[in-house]
Design a protein around this nucleic acid. Structure first.
Ligand SMILES: [Mn+2]
Ligand SMILES: [Mn+2]
Ligand SMILES: [Zn+2]
Ligand SMILES: [Zn+2]
Lengths: 153, 153
DNA sequence: GTCTCGATCTAGACTATGTCTAATGGTGTG
DNA sequence: CACACCATTAGACATAGTCTAGATCGAGAC
């Protein structure tokens, strides 16, 4: 995207980040580096297996963690009980739809921050705004899918 | 804090929020509603058992979820693999020390936001800034405790 | 083309967080 | 005391993620 010459194919992109390409890694990359969703590891496994059945769960986890270590993906801890992966590694914010659990990207410029003060003695490495809400016109009833914390009757 | 008359004891505070008091619930509340940490359920279990040994794991989870439902606690999904509970239910931000995994409160006024624009068609219910970094003077080496995502050798 | 060895892939065991179920225990009312 | 109701409990269960030990692959040396 940002450079028209290098990193044209997924394979080249992996090599450009010091990753030895392989059939499994390319298959995972094809989905995980292109999606605009924020899929969990098991979602990636399910999606990729549709077109590439010879792929173990362990390899998906290994590969995603490798991509994170090499800066191709960013792990997000936002939704309960699972890490999701974000192929957009540039600074941006997130909006969580509390109805569906879906995570939407919010451009960095959608939030104008005048000043930000970390706690004394702490060094701010990065930050983002987590917004929560739902689609307009819906009153927010049920909990986000997959959550269901306890009965509390 | 905010009101000097009602809700003086923990027991009264529970009743004021429509919660039937009990020995276990008071014991959990005594710790979980007063702490300035952001403990996970199992941390709460360990801490409370020090002074109140007759407490099952299930009751801790039930109680914390009840407190959340009644607005005494807020669940935070920030650190990997576990939900933590925040007795400060007023709007504020959080700073995650990536060295230790500790979560620190950041006052609402420490961030001055000029404008914030949720995605089109979405209604913003609430938001907060998640900051990440570490104590001044440390170069940020090891991953936060309890994390340790994969080897990637 | 064959060999070799490190890298990659894999099934399945294992750990940890959280939920659920079914049984038990306590408390107040009549 | 009998009854209803709710809280508590142990342990089973579900799920996310890690780890291990062995099988397989493949890039480079010959
Ligand atoms: Mn790149
Ligand atoms: Mn209160
Ligand atoms: Zn994103
Ligand atoms: Zn807090």
């Amino acid at each position: 995207m940002s450079n028209g010459v290098t990193e044209r194919t997924v394979s080249e992109r992996l090599q450009g980040h010091g990753i030895q390409a392989s059939a499994q890694r390319v298959a995972v990359a094809e989905y995980a580096l292109r999606t605009t969703d924020h899929p969990s590891a098991d979602v990636v496994w399910a999606k990729v297996r549709e077109s590439f059945p010879f792929l173990s769960r362990a390899t998906v986890y290994n590969t995603l963690n490798l991509f994170v270590a090499k800066g191709l993906l960013r792990p997000l801890v936002i939704a309960e009980g699972r890490v999701v992966f974000d192929p957009n590694v540039e600074p941006h914010h997130h909006f969580v739809d509390e109805e569906t659990g879906e995570i939407h990207d919010v451009p960095w410029d959608a939030v104008a921050i005048r000043s930000i003060e970390p706690p004394r003695d702490f060094e701010l490495r990065d930050y983002q705004v987590i917004m929560r809400g739902s689609r307009r016109g819906r009153p927010a009833r049920a909990r986000p899918r997959g959550s269901s914390r306890s009965s509390v009757k």
